[in-house]
Measured scan of single mutants.
Amino acid sequence: SPEVQIAILTEQINNLNEHLRVHKKDHHSRRGLLKMVGKRRRLLAYLRNKDVARYREIVEKLG
């Protein structure tokens, strides 16, 4: 489901952010981070168009 995919991506994004705080010059990982953020944004847009209630619920849960 989109909610699960968004939750997994959010966790991976948070982990990668911590990694990049330590390894500032790791541009390869930064590119992966940007791809993940874009994918999460697309999934959220899809969910917002399909079911606003589910969209609001996941945004509330994940912050």
Rank of each mutant, 00 (worst) to 15 (best):
P2I: 15
L34M: 11
N14F: 07
L47K: 00
R21Y: 04
K61C: 08
R56P: 03
I13W: 01
E3Y: 06
V37Y: 13
V52T: 08
A45V: 10
R31T: 08
H23C: 09
Q5L: 13
I6E: 01
I6T: 00
R40Q: 03
Q5N: 04
R30L: 13
L43S: 00
R21H: 06
G32D: 15
L62T: 03
L43C: 04
K61Q: 12
L43T: 00
R41S: 11
R56C: 13
S1T: 09
P2Y: 14
L43K: 01
M36W: 02
E3T: 04
G63V: 13
H27E: 10
Y55A: 02
R41E: 08
L33I: 06
E57T: 04
S29M: 14
Q5T: 06
D51G: 02
L33Q: 02
L62P: 02
R30W: 14
L43I: 06
R54G: 05
K39W: 08
L20T: 02
D51E: 04
S29F: 08
R31H: 08
E11M: 10
E3L: 06
V4L: 11
S1M: 07
H27A: 11
D26M: 03
V4C: 14
R41W: 11
V22H: 12
L9C: 03
M36T: 03
N49P: 01
Y55R: 00
E18F: 06
N49M: 12
R30I: 12
R48F: 13
I58G: 00
E18W: 06
Q12N: 07
R21C: 07
E18S: 08
R21K: 13
L43Q: 01
Q12S: 06
L34C: 14
N17E: 11
R54L: 15
L20R: 02
R54T: 07
N17M: 15
V37P: 00
I8V: 07
Y46C: 09
N49H: 10
T10Q: 03
L43Y: 02
V22T: 14
K50Y: 14
K61R: 08
V37I: 13
G32Q: 15
L33T: 01
S29E: 04
D51Y: 02
I8R: 09
I58E: 03
S29R: 07
D26V: 03
A45I: 09
E3K: 02
H28Q: 12
I58H: 01
R42T: 07
R48A: 08
V4P: 02
S1D: 12
K35L: 12
R21E: 05
E18T: 06
H28F: 07
R21S: 08
Y46L: 10
L9V: 02
I6P: 00
D26Y: 04
A7T: 10
E3N: 03
K25M: 11
R30P: 02
K35Q: 11
A7N: 06
E57W: 05
H23I: 03
Y46P: 00
K61Y: 10
K61L: 11
V59P: 01
N17I: 15
A53Q: 13
L43P: 00
R41I: 09
R31P: 04
L47M: 04
K35F: 09
V52Y: 15
E18L: 11
L20N: 03
Q5G: 03
N14D: 06
R21V: 04
L44S: 00
I8H: 08
R30G: 03
I6N: 00
E3F: 05
R31K: 12
R21P: 01
L9D: 00
R31C: 11
H27G: 06
Y46R: 07
A53G: 09
R56A: 07
E11F: 08
N49L: 13
K39H: 08
L33P: 00
I58P: 00
R56K: 11
E57C: 06
E57P: 00
N14C: 09
E3D: 05
H27P: 08
R42L: 10
Q12M: 15
N14M: 08
D51C: 05
K24C: 12
K39E: 15
L34P: 01
V59F: 05
R30E: 04
S29C: 09
Q12A: 11
G63P: 06
K24E: 09
L20Y: 04
H27W: 13
S1C: 14
A7E: 09
H23D: 05
E60Y: 06
A7V: 08
R56V: 08
V22E: 08
G32W: 15
N49S: 11
L33D: 00
D26W: 03
P2W: 14
V22D: 11
K61S: 12
E3I: 06
L9I: 04
G38H: 13
R48C: 09
L16I: 07
D26H: 09
P2C: 15
I13L: 02
V52N: 11
D26P: 03
V4T: 09
Q12D: 03
I58K: 00
L16S: 01
V59K: 04
R56G: 04
R54D: 04
A53F: 08
R31A: 11
I58N: 01
N14R: 09
I13M: 02
S29T: 08
T10C: 05
V4M: 12
D51A: 03
G38L: 14
S29Q: 05
E57A: 13
Q12F: 08
K61F: 09
G63S: 12
K24H: 07
K50T: 15
T10D: 02
R40G: 02
L16R: 03
I13Y: 00
Y46M: 12
K25I: 06
K35V: 12
G63Q: 12
